[in-house]
Design a protein around this nucleic acid. Structure first.
Lengths: 161, 161
DNA sequence: TACTGATCATCAGTATACGTCAATTCGAAC
DNA sequence: GTTCGAATTGACGTATACTGATGATCAGTA
């Protein structure tokens, strides 16, 4: 039996745990109240106005049911609007409000700072190599997070909607 | 604004998300019902019989309030026992049951398999380099989260204060 | 004995994450 | 026009994770 620091799964959990804490600290420091997931969603909605929730989930690799709560909280803060689509009344059309735009601009430097803190233990060359390997590792097993889901539904990230 | 691919925080979340899914798949395949966190806790209790919950939390870098629920579920499955310590009536002494030992043995190959799957996109040299950088990055920012890594003081997990 | 501060476990509240199921709606076949 | 399969969303249950608060206990002190 290996030690915990030999287990990529454990290290992944630990790194992500710290990443969330660092994000919270940096974002709070600039007076914003956004979680990492809420930031990702807000950014995606900004880049894809009128997106529906399923497509949004695919874009940032979230579970479909998780998006409901995330969007709910963003809407409650007045950062996005969620309206029934005219073309497809099942779908909810998501748009960023002016308040959402301001919040996104305001939080941006904090997000950048958080990413730098996370890699502060590595030299620039090491950081680059680390991200490269991380992307490579993810790429090889991407789609595994859907392994237990019914196969009929589309893959994460591509819905060409 | 960077793309998600350039954000270590996002990549960390994605990698961890996949790690959990792969773990679940492999563990289910051998007929076990353990989450990654439950496995870590069970292994730590096996290695430190009589450990209390706070020390356990420090060993595997969990939040102290999370441990309550994790141990609760392990106890409900009959894999560990939780009794009030004779020396310190605030503390709960944790021990693995024979059933817990059997479950741990049975799940071990699945856990190993999951770790291999996670790194399947990397060559052995790359995998080693990746884990090295991951450990280094974590080491530099460890302590930023509420759940800090704290090595056990005594061999059996006694913390004397 | 009583007070004080620290420690251990737990609970309430919030948020992420996933699976299952139900309700609604859409598109297409009948 | 109604029925049927598919798709979108939401509700509910379970698990992890952290903040803040509380109760119980321990150790030290007056």
């Amino acid at each position: 039996m290996r030690d915990n620091d030999q287990m990529p799964g454990h290290l992944a959990r630990r790194f992500q745990q710290i990443a969330v804490a660092v994000f919270h600290a940096e974002v709070e420091a600039v007076g914003c109240d956004l979680t990492p997931v809420q930031y990702s969603a807000l950014l995606a909605i900004h880049r894809h106005p009128g997106i529906d929730q399923i497509t949004l989930a695919g874009l940032i690799a979230y579970d479909r049911t998780t998006i409901t709560g995330v969007v709910d909280r963003l809407a409650r803060k007045g950062l996005v609007t969620r309206e029934v689509s005219g073309a497809d009344r099942r779908a909810r059309v998501l748009r960023m409000t002016p308040d959402g735009g301001r919040e996104l601009c305001r939080v941006q430097p904090a997000v950048e700072a958080a990413q730098e803190v996370l890699l502060s233990g590595l030299s620039p060359a090491e950081a680059e190599s680390f991200l490269e390997l991380l992307r490579k590792a993810i790429g090889a097993v991407d789609g595994r997070s859907r392994a237990k889901l019914r196969p009929a539904i589309g893959a994460t990230g591509e819905r060409s909607g």
